[in-house]
Write a protein that binds this DNA or RNA. Structure first.
Lengths: 329, 329
DNA sequence: CTGTTAGCGCCTTCAG
DNA sequence: CTGAAGGCGCTAACAG
């Protein structure tokens, strides 16, 4: 910047002003400065600026990983939204580990991020709390941080499950199994509740299976379940991984969908409609969720006050009927 | 930091030294400092440190988007590798637009990233060049930046296509169509070359279709192609999007795979093996590519010299035979 | 082993 | 409209 100033024959402040446009500078001077900038290929140092201005124009995104399309879509959308606001994003993954989550959040704070958008680790108590991160605006997505006062954006997990299960019930199914991933995951628990209520309301008995996060485990589970005398005639899958694994195992075992078992998944995915049969799912508005979360954060940044109320925004889900439950009753 | 120093009754330098561990500090003093840090919940300001030390411990990742699992896997792997090196990552997307690519790279440079890993925009000449970004270490993934001296990591695109097409030829197919996405994409061009050579080598005529990036377009294309008198008996799909769209259209039209048409895709994806029939693909080592690229960048950072030679690392691909071509001949 | 001085690149404040 | 001084939080270099 000094070089630019010297070349343009002005003081550094003039250069600074030309760049920020905050104060009027005579046109001619501005032109000289611009020429000098171009000649020297000068780029302002945002680090110095951040230090001086005490805000980094940077937010942090903390997700379990970027391999699950659900998280990747969130990260993508947040990143784009941040860009529209002139912010950069730092991304880190916590692999569903609360310690890693805390470590990464701390690192981001040291980097002076102005806010955090996090899809919390689901195992163990999160250590992202106002006690640790005083003043730092945080918005959580997909699930809240238990007992924290942060704004959060989630979907109608329970209602969505009811929607899906009722769809199955309307098709006349009596034995409908719930396939969970982990008993401890917030979203899965809510979806199970929805399942249970729908079943109870219809006077049906519940039947839940957990785990089966890999194709192999699922195959074993399906084999044992369908070796019984009265296997379920329908399965409600609690997330897209479980749905894919179930679909795979059923196809592999040549168990007919929907003739022998009907299938409904929670969370739509790219290839759901090219499966054979195409999978009926409860769709979550992922992009919208991420955008709303980011917008929430930026409005906190603008108003310069961290939300202390912890507003929860619940987004609607939608049943996408395809072919894995047969035709409409 | 001043507060910490005061509370511990030492100078700021002592605090600094305790934190960095660079110089020995007496144990007792160190303890007092640590206590003060804990009491005040002090976190060092990385922005100030970066300004002073003139390196940010931050790299930039620039990808077209995070929606395509291929890019998301790359970003994920780079992010994890960077973390292992104690670096943070800034991520931005360029939506395959060379201007946006340039803008985002510039923004990252202003933020003093120490290096860039980029999956270049494929349309238009990239403006990420040493002329614009003097000294900045850059590694490109998936495709090179034309005429740039940057290290790059790619896969055997041409050979992979030959592998896939030969597999089809071995199954006795004579009319094998190539489904491209864009004529201008570097990877697609190479894959087309592989296709062409394999066909020529077998004395077969080529037949290529481009576009069809949406399910609707693909459906129209497939309808018109299969309305002809001698439609192809096999299709080689140049990437995972095209493969999925083709699969969808074929299923929708109830054209039997592999009986009526055999299908091979380039680039494996999550659900490829739960399709019915499971899709035979040429698999690229995505994670390995990203990890090698990141490692390359970090070794440049360590050696403090930007690669000027532009080393190209070519990674092997692998044919994953599943069911979309029928049984082995 | 510890403290002092100076300055990284920028912008706020105050003078001109 | 423009420039000079000072300091954001930190650490390299030097001194003690």
């Amino acid at each position: 910047m000094n070089d630019v100033a010297k070349l343009a024959g002005v003081g550094t402040m003039t250069v600074s002003r030309v760049l920020s446009g905050s104060v009027r500078v005579s046109e001619e001077t501005a032109k000289r400065v611009h020429e000098a900038i171009a000649k020297l290929n000068y780029r302002p140092n945002e680090v110095a600026r951040a230090l001086r201005e005490r805000h980094s124009r940077q937010i942090g995104i903390l997700v379990p990983n970027l391999l699950d399309p659900f998280f990747a879509i969130c990260a993508h959308t947040i990143s784009e939204t941040a860009n529209e606001h002139g912010y950069s994003v730092i991304i880190a993954t916590h692999a569903a580990d609360a310690d890693k989550e805390f470590t990464e959040a701390s690192r981001m704070l040291r980097r002076q991020v102005e806010g955090l958008i996090v899809i919390p680790a689901d195992e163990g108590p999160s250590r992202i709390t106002p006690a640790e991160f005083r003043n730092l605006p945080v918005v959580t997505l997909d699930r809240p941080i238990e007992g924290s006062p942060y704004d959060t954006v989630v979907v109608e997990n329970k209602f969505g499950a009811q929607l899906g299960v009722n769809h199955l019930i309307e098709h006349g199914h009596k034995r409908i199994a719930f396939f969970g991933l982990s008993r401890t995951m917030h979203t899965i628990k809510l979806r199970y509740e929805g399942y249970r209520e729908a079943m109870r309301h219809a006077g049906l008995q519940t039947e839940a299976y957990y785990g089966n996060g890999t194709q192999e485990e699922m195959l074993t589970a399906i084999q044992s379940i369908f070796a019984g005398k009265t296997p379920p005639t329908a399965i409600f899958c609690s997330n897209n991984l479980i749905a894919r694994n179930a679909f795979h195992a059923l196809s592999y075992m040549q168990i007919k969908i929907p003739e022998t078992v009907a299938l409904v998944g929670f969370d739509d995915f790219e290839t759901a409609n090219i499966l054979n049969p195409a999978l009926t799912v409860v769709r979550q508005p992922i992009t919208e969720m991420a955008r709303i979360g980011a917008t929430l954060l930026f409005s906190q940044l603008r108003s310069k006050e961290t939300a202390v109320q912890g507003k929860t925004t619940v987004l609607p889900v939608e049943l996408v009927v395809r072919d894995s439950c047969g035709t409409h009753p």
